[in-house]
Amino acid sequence: MISKEFADLLEEIPTIGKKHHEHTLLAHAQRNKPSIEKSIKNLPALNDDKSRSSVIISAGPSVHKQQSIQKIKNSKYNGTIVATDGSYIACLKQGLFPDYVITLDPHFSRVVRWFGDPNFEKHTANDDYYDRQDLDVEFRKNTIAQNKLNIDLVNRYSKHTKVIVCSGSHPETVVVRLKEAGFDMYWWNPLVDNPDEPDSLTRKLHAINPIPCLNTGGTVGTAAWVFASTFLDIPINAVVGMDFGYYIETSMQQTQMYYELIEQFGDSAELEKYFTEFVFPLTGERFYTDPTYYWYRQNFLELVERSKNKTINCTDAGTLVDHRIETMFFKDFLSKN
């Protein structure tokens, strides 16, 4: 059961989100225009194995705790693998080359780090973003030396993976880095509102760059799933690392909105109204989520309902528990597919 305060905040997210990003998305789409040589429509067709099923690797904390990438490596799985930008380096470190890596967020300094950031020191000064994300814990203890290794790793293996890059990605940081690393790049627009509305931002983006628009549901993980299940039209799609929340032992201080909630409401009794708990049915483990992850989770489930292809939650953890999605242990999915 979610509190009234939690529900009120959820209602506000889409409006403030649109206001916050509109100018940036249009400006980036315009500045990226000269770089857009190929769109996702130019991708080569999938072979039989790749077109049968896909695994989408998001960057939730379960990817490490459940060893999802290692499970793929240990299996004979030969379907399509789509990594989000945040899980890409973890894949490379474990010797797994995804078929695709997808990037979405327009931020100027944070996203480039997922590909190894040539301006690491400048971009990380006074930004505790990675300390507050329960994604890849390796990135919390990221150092200059580690970043250098990431740059080398991405440069060495970029040819094995096609990058699916959003027209809203930052032109002077992310896009420059992707080119420098030598990726084969395929572009798309974010579908951010109803293009049938006269003042639609999606329509404006498509007018600048007439390339396909994918619904993102607000996160790169959801965009990766739309790409695999709808654009590539793969009939069976497993998602891993799609936690949409935190392990129960994660302290509230490490959640993404903690500082803002404390500043606004002060004490922890008030704070609890902004978090809600779930039990993962296959294991009985407890997880909790905040309004933003809960909002992303809702978006994802609504899109799953609209998809004609099958989606299976193989995260083995987290809050993505609902009648609209099948849940299966990842090892069972890998043995069947």
Binding site: H20, H21, G86, L191, V192, D193, P212, N215, F231, L303
Partner: peptide
């Protein structure tokens, strides 16, 4: 983190 505006719940593409 990883956020994007999102308003449409009907179309996937």
């Amino acid at each position: 983190g990883g956020s994007m505006v999102y308003m449409d719940r009907d179309k996937l593409i």
